[in-house]
Design a protein around this nucleic acid. Structure first.
Lengths: 300, 300
DNA sequence: GGCGTTCTCTGACTAAGGTCCGAGATATGA
DNA sequence: TCATATCTCGGACCTTAGTCAGAGAACGCC
C-alpha cells in the first residue's frame, strides 16, 4: 500500500542509528531512576507528581497507566509517606495527588541525579558543541512531539476545546491592535461546530491542547474553517498544515465540496500557511468585524 | 569543584527535556521487539545472537544476565526452533549458540520492524519536516557520539594505534597532490611516541578508532605533536580540538613547556583548528618533505 | 428524586524479569 | 587418580508490570 520512498527510508535509517547510539549511551538515563531503591514505575510516577501535582486522571493520561495499576502505585507511595492523595473539592469522585515534604526531598534527589547525568553527557564538549547539541535536540524534540500529537474530534463545548479556544482568543486579544472580544457568540458558535453540520478538532500532546480548529456549515456544500490555532511553542513544526489538511478531510466527511475561512492580516504566518495549502484569496463573505482577509479552497 | 555555568545548565535542561519526551514516545515504541510475540528479554537475546554468535558465557557478559535466567531464555528460543545450542568442542562444559534458519528469519523480522517503527514516527510529518528531523538527529548523533568517545593512551605499536595511523596515512596519500609515502620511519617513530619521552593517544567509539595523535620530544622542554588525525565521519564535532587539548595536557605531563607541529597546506581544516586553539605560525623547524607550515604554542 | 455516567479503588489474575542455590557434568593441576 | 574449580541447567521463589471486571461513591441532567 505505502510505496517505499527512498528519502523516507534514509531518514528512517538516521532515526534508527540515532536510537541505537543514544539509548545505548543515555538509555542508562533510567539509572537515574533506578538508583533510588524504588522500582522504575514508582519513580516515574513520583517524578511526574512532583513536576506538576495533578489529579489521578491527569496522571493516568500522562503516563498511560491503567487506573487500577495507578491506584496501587499511589497506595505504595502513600504508605512510604511520599505523597498525599486527597479528595478534589471540585469533584469528590476525583483525587488530587501531591508530594509530602519527604516526597519533595526524594523528588529533588531524582532531579539532581537527572541533571547530573545530562551535565556528564555535555561535559566533554566545548561550549560551542554544547550549544549545537542543545539546538539539535530542541529541534528534534519539537518535531518528534509534533509527529506524535493526537488529533481528535471533540465536542466544541468540552473542557479541552474551551481551553484551546480560550488560548486562541487570548492570543488574538494580544495581537490585534484594538484587542479582541469574543462577545456572546461562544455558546451559539459551539453549537454550530458540532453535529450534524459541524465538528471541532483538538490536537493534544501529553493531554495538553496544542492546536485546534473547527468546521461549520455556511451554505450548501460549503464549509467554513473556524478557530484555527496552534500553540506558540509548537509553531514551525508543520502542525498547522497538518491540522488544516485534517480539517479539510473532516469537511469532506460532512459533505462539503469547498471551504472558506476568514483571518486577520496581523496573523501573517497563518496567511502564508493558507496560501501554501492552496487557498486563494476571495472577497469578503461575512461581516466578522475582526476579519480582513478571506480565503477559499475547492475540495474536489 | 565544577562551577555551575548557566549556559551549561540550560543545555542540560534541553537534553533532559528531550530525553523525557523522546524515551516516552520512542522508548515505548521500542515495542519493535515486543510485537514479535516474544518478550523483550528474549528478543534482545535473539538479536544479540544474530549480531554475533557466541558462547553463553559471552552472552551473559554482554547482556549482563544471570546464568540461570540465560539458560531458561535459551531453552525457550531452542524450543521455538530459533537457535541451536551445541557443545563447545574446545571445552565441553561450555555451549555455543547460533541461529537456525528460522532464527535468522526472525532476526531479519526484528530488523524490518525496527525500520517500520522509524517510518511510522516519520509518517505524520511532511517531507520537509522529515528532512529537518533527520538532520537534527544526525547532528545530535554525531555530537553525542563525540561526547562519549574514550581517549586512551596506548602503545604506538599496538594494533589499535596502527589501525588509526594506517587510516591517517591513507588519507594523506589521498589528499596530497603527489601522494604520501610513510617510508621506513614507522618503527623508529613508534619508539619515539612511547615512554619515557613520548606518548600516543587513540580515541575510540564502540571499540573503533576515530581519532589519534601523539607527542614526542624534540628538544629541551619542547614537545612535538605528531600523527594527529580525526576520522572523516567524525569531523565537525569538536573532536579535533578536544584531542589537541588532551595532547597538550600529555605534553605538560611529559615536562614540556611548549609544543610545535608541522602540517601541510592541503589540510585546511587542521590549519584553521590550530589557529583557533592558539597556535602561532613559525619558521620551518625540521626537514619533513611533506610539511609546509609550522606552528607552535606556549604551554605556560 | 431517578437514571445514566464518571471516577476511584480493590481483588483476581497473568506474564515477565530476575535472583539464589544446588545437582551434575567437565576441566585442570598436583 | 583425586581434589578443586568451572560451567550449565533446572527448581523454587520473589518483585514488577500490567490487565480486567465489578463494587461503590459522586456527579449531571431531566
Amino acid at each position: 500500500m505505502t510505496t517505499s520512498v527512498p528519502e523516507t527510508d534514509a531518514h528512517a535509517g538516521v532515526v534508527r542509528r540515532f536510537n541505537r547510539s543514544y539509548t545505548q549511551r543515555i538509555g542508562a538515563l533510567d539509572d537515574s531512576f533506578l538508583g533510588t531503591g524504588m522500582p522504575l514505575g514508582t519513580a516515574r510516577l513520583l517524578f511526574e507528581v512532583g513536576a506538576d501535582p495533578a489529579t489521578t486522571r491527569d496522571l493516568r493520561a500522562r503516563l498511560g497507566l491503567d487506573s487500577g495499576y495507578l491506584s496501587r502505585l499511589l497506595r505504595r507511595l502513600e504508605a512510604d509517606g511520599l505523597v498525599t492523595v486527597t479528595e478534589d473539592p471540585d469533584d469528590r469522585r476525583r483525587r488530587v495527588v501531591g508530594l509530602t515534604d519527604a516526597g519533595r526531598a526524594r523528588w529533588d534527589d531524582l532531579e539532581r541525579r537527572s541533571a547530573e547525568r545530562a551535565r556528564e553527557l555535555l561535559a566533554p564538549l566545548t561550549e560551542r558543541q554544547r550549544a549545537r547539541l542543545a539546538a539539535a535536540l530542541a529541534e528534534a524534540d519539537l518535531l518528534v512531539r509534533a509527529a506524535t500529537v493526537t488529533l481528535e474530534r471533540v465536542d466544541a463545548s468540552s473542557p479541552v476545546a474551551r481551553a484551546a479556544v480560550g488560548e486562541y482568543f487570548a492570543e488574538l486579544d494580544r495581537r490585534f491592535p484594538g484587542g479582541f472580544d469574543a462577545g456572546e457568540q461562544s455558546a451559539a458558535d459551539a453549537q454550530k461546530l458540532g453535529p450534524p453540520s459541524g465538528a471541532f478538532v483538538v490536537a493534544t500532546s501529553d493531554g495538553e491542547p496544542v492546536a485546534c480548529g473547527g468546521v461549520q456549515t455556511i451554505g450548501d456544500g460549503v464549509g467554513e474553517i473556524k478557530r484555527m490555532w496552534v500553540h506558540a511553542d509548537w509553531r514551525g513544526a508543520g502542525l498547522g498544515s497538518r491540522l488544516l489538511r485534517h480539517l479539510e478531510g473532516v469537511a469532506r466527511e460532512l459533505g462539503h465540496t469547498a471551504v472558506r475561512l476568514d483571518t486577520n492580516g496581523t496573523l501573517t504566518e497563518a496567511v502564508a500557511m493558507y496560501r501554501r495549502a492552496g487557498y486563494l484569496e476571495i472577497e469578503r463573505y461575512n461581516d466578522n468585524p475582526y476579519a480582513e482577509r478571506f480565503f477559499a479552497k475547492d475540495l474536489a
